[in-house]
Design a protein around this nucleic acid. Structure first.
Lengths: 360, 360
DNA sequence: CCAGAGTGCTCAAACGATTGAGCAACCGAG
DNA sequence: CTCGGTTGCTCAATCGTTTGAGCACTCTGG
């Protein structure tokens, strides 16, 4: 009541246009001398706003460094301007894994292109909690979510997929056929790796160190391994040890394979960490890699390149995975026609030394 | 049945309590039969709300899976419930660096404890843009920011520090004495590493591969290197090559040091990536590590542990850095008395094989 | 029987952005 | 001169949450 816009009211209230705090539509409005609505419409390039007004508004917005308040916009629009990247199980080795970081780089890039912020969401160590990411999503802090590295049986995943929020899964989820997901062909990748050992290096007695079998990725890589063995023209002997993607497990599983299978010629590990563990075990037994036992890993996030010998591996294009997942999520959010439910990014065998190939 | 409870208004408005979409204060209110205000106060455990009402509200909130809409809350409160982690310069080697990920783990942990979301903010590749993170902060999507790995001369940093938003810097910023920062004593760390080469292994001719000297971290590590040389009871000879923290630079700088300083006995690299590059160069010249040339790195994010020989390094507690930075940021946001402007987390020398110490 | 205190709620306003409805001014055609 | 259309804005309501003010009621002491 004691207020007005362009008037020079001597009221003590600091309701001034150029007051402290970030610029708002109102502050621009009072500078330009129009209503906040007009400012909003001008910035949106609404046809019913005059050219001069638009120019004046844009100039004032630039001068004041105006950026729309995200809470106000989200509240009105009914949806946030952020997307969330969700990592359901925060075992340290998951969130801390380089895979996740590469994913994030890709997601971030795609999100930047859409002027969208990226929210990281994970569980605290105590998993009896109703899940931190659940709260983030229910609070509508994110317009959608990308879910990475979930176990097959994680009930949270299907709950979120059915939760009404746009969700893109990373990986393959055959038991959730209606879910949108972006993954890679792990079966083909693992088969290629195994076939390389068989066909290029003539190895016949091969052990596989798999990941935990409640992860689809572990299942698929094991499947690819068996496929390659089965399709081999020469008869091959296979063996399996189940690990948990950790270096320690790789070491223990390698020991198990070596003890259980005389004349073992090669080990294919479902990720590089375990391959490195296997390398340590082989080395400690005085076995040479690749001369005595050949070794192949999976992932190629830097680990495998650094070891001596460098580990032959299958490159997982995590960054591309993140990029595509984000783009798909934006399609979902924008309600674009979306018949595609699963997309694979190409994988690639990276032959280094541990399989017996010549060093570079 | 699609209508409100106590009012039998025949209006066609689908204002029903249990309508589609997420639960709101209003929907709880109409279930319980009180006003939205009462619900809000009940959930906040306000003393002026009766015990029975509180219980009914809490039960209804639980049943409906109510989580406060973050946009509404942020708008009303005038501040977001997220914090941002900002990485000003997105050269791939910065955002993609494991350091960043460890930082994120720590930040995330502390943020989870405060029911706060973590926003990742970085620049797209094209840096002519007014900066993506700038927009995030100006849009008030975050209540505060943690800024990681900024160059000394990055004008964005001081702008953000002075921008009114609570900001915690990671690292040491001697030219921004009023800024709150969390870092580590790189001078001491580098001195310890260098001193180890001098005192434990008796080396006297030592080269340093530094990072880009517009980074305080690079300056401090170089300073520590020189301090250790200067304080040595035996006269030492030093030499410097300036890199950019990349493996390629490490390799080139190692070549430069080897060519420029006859009888070089040791190399101290300002990070592990460059130490690894140096290792490759030494190896390609047929020089043995550590017998011919000893090698020390800095960071300990996994790389240095994996190489052969494993690289002696200085452990940077990135996770702890992130944790403390987040906690300090919450202090700032909550307006806690905050005289402390800089805090150091302890560093630790990790002696492995590349310096000449016995393997494990 | 009434003042005063205490209890338990409701009301209304506010945060900032957006948008359908509406209104005033003007122009050209009839 | 008036009617219809167009232009260029303003108004008011809305999103969901929070909170100071206020209202109705009960209890207690005098």
């Amino acid at each position: 009541m004691s207020e007005s816009e362009n008037a020079t009211a001597p009221s003590p209230k600091p309701q001034s246009a150029r007051g402290r705090g970030p610029a708002t539509l109102r502050s621009i409005a009072s500078v330009v001398g129009v209503s906040p609505s007009a400012v909003s419409m001008a910035l949106a390039d609404h046809p019913r706003i005059g050219r001069e007004t638009k120019e004046a508004v844009r100039a004032a917005a630039r001068d004041l460094g105006y950026v729309a308040n995200s809470a106000g916009r989200a509240l009105r629009a009914g949806r946030s301007t952020s997307i969330a990247v969700v990592v359901p199980n925060t075992a340290q080795h998951v969130f801390g894994h380089p895979y996740f970081m590469h994913l994030l780089v890709g997601v971030n890039e795609a999100a930047n292109a859409q002027d969208t912020a990226v929210l990281i969401s994970t569980n605290p160590a105590t998993d009896h909690d109703p899940a931190a990411y659940d709260r983030i999503l229910r609070s509508q802090a994110a317009a959608g979510a990308i879910i990475a590295s979930a176990a097959i049986n994680d009930p949270n995943v299907s709950r979120m997929v059915d939760g009404g929020l746009p969700v893109v899964l990373i990986g393959r989820y055959p038991h959730l056929p209606h879910a949108v997901s972006v993954g890679m062909d792990d079966v083909a990748g693992a088969a290629a790796a195994t076939r390389h050992l068989i066909a290029e290096h003539g190895l016949r007695r091969i052990g596989h160190i798999s990941g935990p079998l409640e992860h689809q990725t572990a299942l698929d890589r094991y499947q690819g391994f068996r496929d390659a063995i089965a399709e081999s023209p020469e008869p091959c002997v296979q063996s399996l040890a189940v690990g948990d993607f950790s270096e320690e497990a790789g070491r223990a599983c390698a020991a198990q394979l070596l003890d259980g299978m005389p004349g073992l010629q090669a080990i294919f590990a479902a990720n590089d960490e375990m391959a490195y563990g296997a390398l340590l075990e082989l080395r400690s037994r005085g076995l040479r890699v690749p001369q005595d036992v050949a070794l192949v890993g999976y992932d190629d996030f830097g680990v495998s390149r650094l070891t001596t010998p460098a580990i032959t591996t299958v490159r997982v294009p995590a960054e591309e995975l993140g990029r595509r997942a984000a783009r798909r999520l934006f399609d979902l959010i924008d309600g674009a026609a979306e018949p595609v439910t699963h997309e694979n990014v190409p994988i690639e065998l990276v032959a280094r030394e541990s399989c017996g190939c010549p060093p570079d």
